[in-house]
Amino acid sequence: MVDGTGGAVWGRAEQQAFRSRVRGCLLGGAIGDALGAGIEFDSLAAVRERHGAQGVTDYVPAYGRRGAVTDDTQMTLFTVDGLIRAHVRRDTGAWHPPTDVHAAYRRWAATQRDWGPDERKHEDGWLAREEWLYSRRAPGNACLSGLADDRMGTLERPKNPESKGCGTVMRSAPFGLLVGWEPQLVFQLAVECAAQTHGHPTGYLSAGAFAVIVHAVTRGDSLDGAVQQALAQLAVHPGHDETTDALRRALGAVRQGMPDAERVESLGEGWVAEEALAMGVYCALVAEDVRHGLLLAVNHGGDSDSTGSVCGNLLGALHGETALPPHWVVELEGRATILQLADDFAMEMTQGSALHTPATPAAAPGWLQRYPRA
């Protein structure tokens, strides 16, 4: 099915199953994000006082509407855009995905300062022209400052070297959807792209671990097995202790009794990368179904949208789009854009050779307008 670079020959059933997981991952993450958006800065006591003993059980208004997403979903979508553009640009002989992802993040950063897409250039592609994305949804300072100029942060010279905020983890699920890649390459790419905004080892290694977990479940592994794969990848990287300990605590919490908000809060608040990762993973591990897992992931006194996003990415990749509660899918902001991008990603990964090759660069000119090589 895969050849190590994403250029595999896929059967029809495999393509359909993969597309369902991609859709599930992106929609699930966005739903978790939207469920947490309205309570992101509230304590658990305040959430219960306002919404009842169970906390939120449905979307609550945020940013002027129900089902609104935050910077977590915005940046995740631009990660997908960057990965598609990287695969398209490979036809030119240029192959450096971190550069393409960085360019995509810079396009996201423009949506945080520009009024709208009127001034976007053709080479920016279609996603940067989606007007609904031009809205500030409490973006992290490290994400904004890390992308404020055109210098790309690297592992040797990262941006914000002391920052390990969860802005690395919440945008990194798409790296795990590169199922044609080997796990160590998925890990490395996620790490390199995280260092573009967050230079603390825990920040970028947590992103790598999350990508490997998504990668494993998308390829059909169990979630517990996926976490073990991430731990194995982490073990060979200096500075992994905080991320490793957080994941081990998440695994340990599964065995400590019935899941509840207090047990989720025992893993942290989610504002930093390893805590958001551990909390999202724990909620996915103990989830009775998608609804149960997502509500558990957002009802706490920390970074509810980010932990909800991480949990939703995992459950969606694990079970596919049809497992998502339809009433949440229907009200989700940007659903059409998310589905279009998910389907484009799945098409590029499974049928990219029919859309563009070095020998026939204009095989699908509409595709190259959507994802220019520039």
Rank of each mutant, 00 (worst) to 15 (best):
S206I: 05
V217R: 08
G153A: 15
R23P: 07
R335H: 06
L44W: 09
R89Q: 12
S20P: 02
G32P: 03
E182M: 15
E331V: 01
T218G: 14
W126H: 13
E14S: 08
G24P: 15
L178K: 07
Q351S: 13
Y63F: 05
H198C: 15
Q340P: 00
S135D: 05
R66L: 06
C25R: 00
A253M: 15
T5E: 10
D71I: 11
M1W: 10
L26Q: 04
L177H: 10
P97V: 13
F78P: 11
R249I: 03
G199P: 11
H51G: 04
V69K: 00
H200F: 05
H198D: 05
R248E: 13
A323I: 08
A297L: 01
A250M: 01
G29I: 08
D260I: 09
R48D: 11
L341F: 11
E40S: 03
E265G: 03
S206L: 12
R263E: 04
A374I: 13
A209D: 06
G165Q: 01
A148R: 14
R370C: 15
L251S: 07
H96V: 12
R249V: 08
T79E: 10
R12L: 12
G11Y: 14
V212T: 12
V310A: 05
Y282N: 00
A104H: 00
G320T: 06
H237Y: 11
T360K: 08
T70M: 01
E275D: 15
V330W: 02
G7A: 09
W132R: 11
V80K: 09
G312S: 06
A317K: 04
M349G: 07
G316Y: 01
Q188V: 13
A342T: 03
L355H: 09
S222I: 12
D58H: 03
A359S: 08
M279C: 05
C193M: 05
I213R: 02
I213V: 15
S163G: 07
V60L: 06
M1E: 05
T168N: 11
